[in-house]
Write a protein that binds this DNA or RNA. Structure first.
Lengths: 158, 158
DNA sequence: TCATCCCCGTTATGTAATAACATAATTCAA
DNA sequence: TTGAATTATGTTATTACATAACGGGGATGA
């Protein structure tokens, strides 16, 4: 995590342990099965890497880590990422060009994030989107999905 | 505008005329003067091109159009863009890698957009950000700026 | 008028993402 | 169970987006 705009440590975090990851991968497989989609090896591997990482991870970091012996080809990872995103298993953080596992499977295709510019962590928050849907209604605009990205500093980095 | 996911025309738009652009450029110069910043030639040119364009425009389109005779160098334009963004004169649309002139100088560094996936137009909407600021407060997160991007279809593209 | 700061021009490179086409695995109906 | 259709992957190459690094020049202020 090389976001150091400050000098304190950034270890106020806790990634999933391997059991946690296994559990999430199993859920994901079940979800795909239920949806009639295939959870293939590269997709699973990509999701595993996203889950194992603490916070948003870049596509090229995934590419580098994909094989124990060497890097994957970009399309392998990008295709997996877009599949996972469509399945609601991960989110793309536009302002970071990075990806993060989805926490909250309720609000499909819409998400809000608090992004710490200091430690690089992200927190996914559920929002009621009433004010934006209201505005959209006034404009006669059909919203398909909303991305909200709030940048600032998290509690530990204040 | 090459967004055609549909076949109807996308001319439901109206760019600023040259008087409108002149007026906006003059305002921008005044704003810089007041802030003790320099509105230099490349910055002004960049802003002019953003204003002249209808909707979000890509950095490399600006680069191509910068000089009548040929393209600018990328850093020229990127530097100008980041200056203009800091001054609140333009917004970056993260999910499009594109830039649009700011309409509403009230809510500094935060903006919400309705982005039509069909015609590529954007509408800047003012929102009350109470629900996200509330969530941030609960997380003890200090928000510096918020970007909200709602994708869908505008009235004319329905 | 000298030092400093800010900005610009330029070259080069780094980073992110996709186009295009070939091959392989899966599914499903005949 | 075979073969056609579909879906996914492998591979090469390219395109798109963005910044690092350095030198020079003009404005600003002691």
């Amino acid at each position: 995590m090389t976001h150091a705009a400050c000098d304190h440590d950034h270890h106020h975090d806790h990634a999933l342990d391997s059991n946690g990851i296994e559990a999430r991968l199993a859920e994901a497989q079940a979800l795909c099965l239920a949806a009639g989609e295939r959870m293939t090896a590269p997709r699973l591997r990509t999701l595993e890497l996203v889950l194992a990482h603490n916070g948003p991870i870049k596509a090229y970091d995934l590419i580098d880590r994909f094989h124990p012996e060497g890097a994957a080809k970009p399309p392998t990872v990008y295709r997996s990422l877009s599949f996972l995103e469509q399945m609601g298993l991960i989110h793309r953080i536009e302002s970071l060009n990075a990806f993060v596992a989805c926490h909250d499977h309720t609000e499909s295709h819409s998400a809000a994030f608090l992004l710490c510019e200091c430690c690089g962590k992200s927190e996914e928050v559920a929002l009621n989107l009433s004010s934006i849907t209201q505005k959209a209604l006034e404009s006669d605009f059909k919203v398909e999905r909303v991305t909200i990205e709030a940048k600032g500093r998290c509690k530990a980095c204040r």
